[in-house]
Write a protein that binds this DNA or RNA. Structure first.
Lengths: 214, 214
DNA sequence: GACTGTGAAGCCATTCACAGCT
DNA sequence: AGCTGTGAATGGCTTCACAGTC
């Protein structure tokens, strides 16, 4: 299949993920064919945007007709790398880490949690989502044995860089960081931050701004 | 104080939140004065970006010198609306909702959780983070009595729109949605989505792409 | 000399509008 | 007639480069 190579906006990748989830739902409902307008309506965008997002990667539809739901979804999932399963380790078994370990949304897509780690001796050996909580000194070995490629950091801010340093040494490929701090990793490791307070603070800014402009 | 009024990029607001957290940390460490370059280094950006972000809102520094840490942080927090405390209700006391109720990072900024709701009869009346879990039919009343302005949705995707509809009726001002689905709200309600699987899927796309371009 | 504040330039993403196909 | 695919136009954000200030 044709893979065009201009720089793809990250926003496009995020939307592809949303389109894919929507298409999976439509497919389950028995929908066979769909238009860019219907995808836009179901995912909160514009039809031109939907078509442009697809256009970066090829031609998936039929002019005058639309897209086959199954085919399109397969294509998007392949683009996103979801035609294989990914092994994930989670560091931090506090409230947030525990929630993430048990989050079913990951399994429903292509992600399997294969290790949970915490430095609290009281938690060691306890089971969480079918996994034993291990000490951080088992992290590198587990990543290598399991061939885990993605790590989720869910530890307090002051421990996040230390955890990241172990992950770097363990040759992890990507990190999803929930700790409310900036962490530094080499350029070849993919890093994304999910910042809970930043999201709330954007909301308060927007409330305040919309209330003063009226 | 002078409030300039051109459209502010949302990315700027998100960075201001990160700057503020960084400045709070520096302030606690006793740092008095700081330059845009030091802020950039501590938050992972460029010094020009830092100065431009501030410039949308006024002049907070002294040429040739830098910024006073305390003053600058106060200014940013006021811009973000964090010079008051905000009351938050959380709907969904599953793993994720429970974690959010107990998340200390919210209190450390300006957010107080004043209500937790779940439709599971087994959970009703249980305490979570010092709050009793209430049934969803108490949601509207609680929001009005407590004057809560922000809601966090942490329920399964198939219940998210129903919860949102109650929130709309309750005149909530902003919603932070963790359910993996698109929800529709009127334009005057601020909405942000935190999508856990989307973030992982951007990572898998990036891993795949960086591995095929070498 | 050091650092801020900012117009201008450059770059990137989205929207438009229409040609191309069924 | 209906819908996709896409070059061109638009709009928005970031970076540059330097004038202004201490």
């Amino acid at each position: 299949m044709i893979m065009k190579n201009p720089k793809i906006p990250e926003a496009t990748i995020m939307r592809l993920s949303v389109y894919s989830r929507f298409l999976t739902k439509q497919d389950k409902k028995g929908v066979i064919s769909i238009s860019s307008g219907q995808i836009a309506e179901g995912t909160g965008g514009s039809s031109a945007q939907v078509r442009k997002d697809f256009a970066y990667f090829g031609e998936f539809g039929t002019r005058g007709v639309g897209y086959n739901v199954k085919d399109l979804n397969h294509n998007i999932m392949r683009i996103l790398g979801l035609n294989k399963r990914w092994k994930v380790v989670i560091i931090g078994a506090g409230n947030l880490g525990s929630a993430l370990v048990q989050y079913k949304g990951f399994r429903n897509r292509a992600f399997d949690v294969v290790g949970v780690f915490d430095n609290d001796p009281l938690k060691l050996g306890l089971y969480l989502g079918g996994l034993r909580i291990l000490a951080p000194d088992m992290l590198e070995q587990t990543i290598k044995e399991q061939e885990a490629e993605i790590a989720i950091i869910a530890v307090p801010a002051n421990h996040a860089q230390g955890v990241a340093d172990i992950l770097i040494q363990s040759k992890i490929k990507a990190i999803l960081n929930f700790a409310p701090t900036v962490i530094n990793v080499p350029f070849h490791i993919e890093l994304r931050n999910v910042d809970l307070t930043v999201n709330l603070e954007v909301l308060t800014y927007n409330i305040k701004t919309s209330e003063s402009n009226n």
